[in-house]
Design a protein around this nucleic acid. Structure first.
Length: 196
DNA sequence: AGCGGGATTTTCT
DNA sequence: GAAAATCCCGCTT
């Protein structure tokens, strides 16, 4: 059977719904003989109709991956020093992606700590640039097919709405009130729990 | 615990 | 030329 066509159908929807569906899914990163496996615990949605999104200004060299099919990796470089990674979501003509803001280690923790220069505990992966550092993701993985090594996304059963917290996105200056950040309730790796 | 600043370069105006 | 989907450190409560 051709799994490649159907695996990521669950991401072929609006950015906010797809970002929510990514919570609980796993990422497996192969680095040489080593393997790191993590669970996605925090995401943010971005699409072409959203002024805060890189895709808002259209399909450029930088954003081309966002305008491709779901299930590919979009990596961008920011603040002159950090990489952040996204899972492309929605159909090929819908420029959308979900920023992976935090993950929970499942296996390969010692290598993650090493990649984070000794940072331990939740500091290993409780932020988008920390996730990329821990998983050794940089621009060379931009456009990577997430069905294939060295980075594989696996669907997990969808969480119930009670397990998901929704709120405003972090670190943006446009569309601040749009509640397109999602995280797993009570998870210690969430970068910044909502106040209140 | 919370605030403020610096690091540093890609991307688009 | 300015801003940027961030992080870390140091200083103040």
């Amino acid at each position: 059977m051709d799994e490649s066509k159907t695996d990521f159908d669950f991401l072929n929807t609006s950015a906010d719904l797809a970002a929510k569906r990514l919570l609980g899914c796993t990422l497996t990163r192969q680095i040489g003989n080593h393997e790191i496996k993590v669970k996605i615990v925090e995401t943010e949605a971005y699409d072409q109709f959203d002024a805060a999104s890189h895709s808002y200004r259209g399909n450029t060299n930088r954003t081309a991956v966002m305008f491709g099919p779901a299930g590919y990796l979009y990596v961008y470089f920011t603040y002159g020093m950090h990489y952040c990674c996204n899972v492309v979501i929605g159909g090929p003509d819908y420029g959308a992606a979900a920023l992976i803001r935090a993950v929970e280690p499942i296996s390969g923790l010692s290598l993650m700590v090493k990649n984070r220069h000794g940072r331990d505990g939740i500091e290993v992966s409780n932020g988008p640039a920390k996730v990329c550092q821990a998983l050794d993701i940089d621009k060379s993985l931009n456009g990577q097919n997430l069905r294939l090594p060295p980075l594989i996304l696996q669907k997990q059963p969808e969480l119930s709405s009670k397990e998901i917290v929704t709120g405003a996105r972090i670190g943006i200056s446009q569309n601040k009130d749009l509640a397109w950040r999602f995280y797993i309730r009570g998870n210690p790796y969430v970068s910044k729990p909502n106040k209140g």
